[in-house]
Amino acid sequence: MKQHHGMTSIVKNTARLVSGFIAVFGLYVALTGHLAPGGGFAGGVILAASGVLIVLAFGRRFSAKVITDRAVHIADAAGAGVFLLVALLGFLAGAFFANFIPTGEPHHLKSGGAIPISNLAIFVKVGAGLLGAFMALSAFRLTSKESKT
């Protein structure tokens, strides 16, 4: 890695240390979505934020190798697909989107039936989608016809 890709090594090392924790925090927010404020979307945004940090610190060239377009697309589609699947599995319990897993005791992590699964699916979908959108936007170069010279 040449120095002119991304920011200084201080930023890179900090980002390397911190981004994992940010991602785990996102997972936490998504996992406890059925108990406390938060949920799949908020968690996914936090996950994407950790990715954005990597992109900013290490530059697009490097991060595009780690976070490929293809992986983002697949994760995005898989998240949405699992969410739909959970909705369809509701037919097992009689109706579309019905909760087909025993709901368990309220206020415990293991409760809510299919809701945590949906939350996780949304977590993956939003994280991948938002990160993908950010990567795609950062790929643009703002060069116009006039300013090319």
Binding site: D69, R70, H73, I74, A77, A78, G81, L84
Partner: peptide
């Protein structure tokens, strides 16, 4: 569902 499968398959 088909749209999501399509995106996944294409990639």
């Amino acid at each position: 569902g088909a749209a999501f499968i399509l995106v996944a398959l294409a990639n």
